[in-house]
Every structure is written in structure tokens, then in C-alpha cells.
């Protein structure tokens, strides 16, 4: 199978998920005697493209245009679909990020292809790909078969491992896709990034706080532990609804579904809607003063007790471990 791997970049840097997508594409290619072509879209991005060779891209197509510096739903989708067509790709792989989730449905329609989003595993089965994806916020999983000859799949970030580059540089080909004003019907004008803020959807470790912390001013203990662990800060809906934390930190069925390698739930009871969003984390730590709290049923490790006493001690111990 020929696979087109869309390699996401922001600010002229390839995202970690770009390597994950190319590496996953390589695995499919190996099993189907196929090849991986990567695609990079942006402005001044030619220089970053060749490195994708080290993860399995045989060639990298680059579409470089000042108007593509920031994301455009309409223009990016057009480019991805056109390049997929030109390459006769039978699979288009993207990351299920804000960008990939936005582009993939449009690309699928342009290619009249079936779509499987937010996949957590891919299996080659003859000429088919069986994609495993969580539904009901992770309360169940489905295996999906896309029945069209061209398939569009997006991969949940952080789940597929990127491995390390073997150092290979892929040949880079600049391509032009003709773009008119109409192709920029939706366009990003500005990106505002909370400086240095790690998003729960991308983080490898998350420390989340719940209503048991009693007030927004007490989240400093969560932030300090998160900083010591290099983690993102998450929150339960109770604290988001109370206005203690911004809603982009909410984990759960109506927040973000996360699968970090470590999830630390502090003073969170473990309501079904919260568990739905985080129970696929590799390891879960619960800190709660109520030993009957449902969060302990999914926790790998639990400490029963007062968060105000335990969390600062944990921060101290983690710093000690890291030699700080």
C-alpha cells in the first residue's frame, strides 16, 4: 500500500506526532510491501522535511507558501487530498490533533474515502486495515474496517511510538498546488499559545486536581507537582464548572480523553464521566482522603489521605529523585 503521511508542523517545527504518524505508516508499508510518502505543509518548511526519512518516509513532498504559514481548514484539506490523488495513495494518515481532526473529515470527503478517527491501533488484514478506536469516551472500543479503496485514518497522539531516527534523509520534492482566494474560506489569522503550557492531550504525564482542593488558590500544589514531573495540569469538571480552572484542562467524557503514561488524580472522586476520559492511561495514581472513592478502583497506586499534606511531600520526593 502506498501511504501518505501528513506530518504536522507548527512554527516551522515538526510535531512529535508527525514522527508517530510516519512511523505508524512505515509499519503498514512493511506489512503490505508498500511505501511511505510524507507531506509537509507550511512556509519555509523545506529544511525540516528530510528528517522524516529517518522514521521511514521514502520521499517527502513539501508544499511551501507564505499563505500556508498558519493553518487553513479549506486550503490544507485541498492540498492533502490533491497530493494523495497525485501519489495514488491508498491510505492517508494524520494525527488526531486539533489540526488533523479538522482536516481529516474534509480530506475523506474530497477523496470519497471512509474515515476512522482517533485510532489507537492498526492491524493489516489482507488488503484491509482494521483500526481500533475508543468510543463512548473509552468506555468501549471498536474495530473499524474502512470499506473504500482509499482510507483516511487519524491516530491518537502519544499512543503510537515514534522510535528514534535511523538518521536517513529522505529526498524532498517541492510541489505546487494552485490555491485561489476561495481556498482560504477558513483561515487562521493568529495563534495564541498559553506560554509554555503543556496540553493534557499531548502530555506524557498529567496531574489533575478536583473539588477536594477546595479553591482555585490551592492549585499551586498541583502546579508545583506538575512542574516537578514535567507534567500538564488537568482538572475535573467540577472545578472547571466552578471557574477554578480553564475548560481546556478538563479531562473526561465532555472534556479531553487522555492516555498519558502516568495520570495522577488528586482529590478527584472518580465519577464515571471522569473515568471515561482517563482510564486508558498506562498508570494511574490516586490521592484521596476517602478510601471508598471510586477513583481507587482504577488506580494502580493509591494513597489515602489529605492532599494538602501528601502532594507537597510528593513534589519534594520527585525533586529528590531527579536530583534537584
Amino acid at each position: 500500500m502506498k501511504i501518505l503521511a501528513f506530518a504536522e508542523q507548527r512554527d516551522g517545527q515538526l510535531k512529535k506526532n508527525a514522527f508517530e504518524v510516519v512511523s505508524a505508516a512505515k509499519k503498514i508499508a512493511e506489512q503490505t510491501n508498500g511505501e511511505v510518502v510524507a507531506l509537509v505543509i507550511g512556509e519555509g518548511v523545506e529544511g525540516i522535511a528530510a528528517a522524516l526519512g529517518g522514521y521511514g518516509a521514502k520521499r517527502v513532498v513539501v508544499v511551501d507558501d507564505a499563505r500556508l504559514k498558519l493553518y487553513s481548514s479549506t486550503a490544507y484539506a485541498k492540498i492533502i487530498a490533491e497530493v494523495a490523488g497525485k501519489e495514488s495513495a491508498s491510505v492517508v494518515l494524520l494525527a488526531a490533533t486539533a489540526m488533523g481532526k479538522d482536516a481529516a473529515p474534509r480530506v475523506a470527503v474530497k477523496l470519497e474515502a471512509g474515515l476512522a478517527v482517533d485510532c489507537v491501533a492498526l492491524k493489516v488484514d489482507g488488503g484491509d486495515i482494521i483500526a481500533t478506536r475508543p468510543v463512548y469516551a473509552g468506555k468501549a472500543q471498536t474495530d473499524i474496517k474502512v470499506t473504500t479503496s482509499v482510507k483516511v485514518l487519524s491516530l491518537r497522539p502519544n499512543v503510537f511510538t515514534a522510535g528514534t531516527s535511523n538518521g536517513a534523509q529522505a529526498p524532498v520534492e517541492k510541489t505546487n498546488v494552485s490555491l485561489t482566494d476561495a481556498d482560504f474560506a477558513s483561515v487562521v489569522r493568529e495563534v495564541t499559545q498559553a506560554t509554555g503550557k503543556l496540553d493534557v492531550a499531548e502530555a506524557d504525564i498529567i496531574v489533575s486536581g478536583g473539588r477536594g482542593l477546595k479553591g482555585p488558590e490551592n492549585f499551586n500544589i498541583i502546579e508545583e507537582l506538575a512542574a516537578a514531573l514535567g507534567a500538564a495540569v488537568g482538572a475535573s469538571r467540577a472545578v472547571v464548572d466552578a471557574g477554578w480552572r480553564p475548560h481546556d484542562e478538563q479531562v473526561g467524557q465532555t472534556g479531553k480523553t487522555v492516555s498519558p503514561s502516568l495520570y495522577v488524580a488528586v482529590a478527584i472522586s472518580g465519577a464515571i464521566q471522569h473515568l471515561a476520559g482517563m482510564s486508558s492511561s498506562k498508570y494511574i495514581v490516586a490521592i484521596n482522603k476517602d478510601k471508598a472513592a471510586p477513583i481507587f478502583q482504577v488506580a494502580d497506586y493509591g494513597i489515602v489521605g489529605d492532599a494538602f499534606e501528601i502532594v507537597p511531600a510528593l513534589t519534594k520526593e520527585v525533586k529528590k529523585l531527579h536530583g534537584k
Binding site: R189, E190, A194, K197, D199, D248
Partner: peptide, 8 residues
């Protein structure tokens, strides 16, 4: 978007 917002 991840860790921020886009003005569209």
C-alpha cells in the same frame, strides 16, 4: 487547539 487558541 493544543495549549492555546486559533483566531479564525
Amino acid at each position: 487547539i493544543e495549549g492555546g487558541h486559533e483566531k479564525v
